[in-house]
Amino acid sequence: MTDQRPLLEVTDLVKHYAVRGGVLRRRVGTVHAVDGVSFSVAKGETLGLVGESGCGKSTVARSVLRLVEPSSGAIKLNGTDITGLSKAEMRPHRRSMQIVFQDPFASLNPRMTAGDIVGEPLGVHGLATGRAQQERVAELFGQVGLRADQMKNYPHQFSGGQRQRICIARALALGPSLIVCDEPVSALDVSIQAQVINLLIDLQRKNDFSYLFIAHDLAVVAHISHRVAVMYLGRIVEIADKTELFANPRHPYTQALLASVPVADPKAKKLAPMIDGDVPSPINPPSGCAFHTRCRYVMDRCKVERPTLVKAGGQHEVACWLNDGTGRAENS
């Protein structure tokens, strides 16, 4: 990690979706998918983004790539604000950011050969055609642990893990500086999951790009990330260095989330759910701190005033009113 200008800088990102109803399709509500999110990713760094379904982590990923248009906020890539750029202006920037999706069955065109899938971005950006493209694709196949003779096969001839390798090869083709991974191993079996995680780590070591790594599996995120941000209902509630976050979580939600993960050790039985109830709807998120409806330590202030991320020592930031806005130490 370096202390230069961050590769990716997201400031106050907001994405609202309109809920329409009635005959006139009038706006009857707003989904607060992402509600003021700021973070940065340094060159060669992996930032993990965790949270439960509906917390907005995938919307953040897609907004960063401008696959969905953010409602407001700024996204800076290498110092350039890309939020206002037109499609044509975006194009050169697209080369430096790529995405790997969760479902390797849905994200590959079944009528294209694996070689054509990986070669397509090279053709689109006019980087390599014909023979040169074939050679580059063969090289990419080698990098992700596939054989060059598999280039002529179609996606259905590959297993889930191999398909994810094809997706990774396609993302690598343009030599990106940022790869967004949206639940890249969630659809894979445990033994295959480890292979793909190792591949992602190896590739980062070689190429020094950054990952924005989104997953609901805390163990996977803990393993691959340098820093981790925890999201709840469209907001980041805590962000810290990986080791610090897992050793010393300060937001009651992070603490509950960590305590909910079943530990693979029968001697550490602890099946006691830390929070009751469900995540509230993002259509009418609770006032103040969005977590106050499920929080054990809720105070009056939490219900009315929205806490912002503040430093709770070092680079550890937390959005919680407890202890003058520094959250709760776990063993207090």
């Binding site: 445990v190 033994s191 480890a194 292979q195 780590i201 980062q204 803990a222 393993h223 080791t243």
Partner: peptide, 23 residues
């Protein structure tokens, strides 16, 4: 091959033990 949640002190870029090949 399972990543452990609490990997204090474990290097981030430590490799997981993988089972080679597939089912």
């Amino acid at each position: 091959s399972m990543p452990a949640v609490i990997s204090f002190g474990a290097k981030t870029d430590a490799r997981l033990n993988e089972i080679p090949g597939m089912v």
